[in-house]
Design a protein around this nucleic acid. Structure first.
Length: 154
DNA sequence: GCCAACGTTGGC
DNA sequence: GCCAACGTTGGC
């Protein structure tokens, strides 16, 4: 079982949006980075857990938990000329981009800000905190996962 | 295959 | 709005 952190811009898709979806489930579409694509396509498994992370907002940070409920399959928005994520070079017969389905579990007890994560030596190795890392899908170790859950009550 | 130019991400 | 960091594109 793997752990992940998935970023979404607050004003494009928030954890509240996910909670409001039917079955509190949605596909995580629009990822257009090959490293992230590889994780979506090859590594994320049903039952994996992920933190929901709000980016590009006043206080970026971890806001909730979700579960992978459908493994990687082709991201249909890549084939839709009307989608903001349309990629004319992605061939439906040989899909370039993938998505998974995720289900809302709960909000964290509080927003855990990025600035706070940076203060914890135990988290220093998190890919999220590495300089220049812009990936929207990031792995989290089980130790880091447990540690982060502990911060909820801090 | 190199690399300059350009676009995007995302914190601040 | 700024800008650092990184990825992608395309000419050569």
């Amino acid at each position: 079982m793997n752990y992940w952190l998935m970023k979404s811009e607050l004003n494009s898709f928030s954890i509240d949006d996910l909670q409001r979806m039917p079955e509190q489930t949605d596909h995580w579409d629009g990822v257009r980075n090959y490293q992230a694509r590889n994780m979506l396509r090859d590594q994320m498994k049903v039952g994996d857990l992920a933190f929901f992370y709000h980016s590009s907002c006043e206080v970026p940070g971890i806001v909730g938990l979700m579960r992978v409920v459908q493994e990687g399959y082709p991201d249909s928005t890549a084939f839709d000329p009307h989608s903001a994520y349309y990629d004319p070079k992605s061939d439906a017969n040989k899909p370039r981009w993938y998505m998974v389905d995720v289900q809302y579990i709960r909000h964290t007890k509080r927003l855990i800000p990025l600035a706070e994560l940076k203060k914890h030596p135990a988290l220093a190795r998190m890919p999220l905190l590495q300089k220049g890392n812009r990936l929207s899908i990031l792995p989290v170790s089980s130790e880091q996962w447990q540690y982060l859950l502990g911060l909820e009550n801090a």
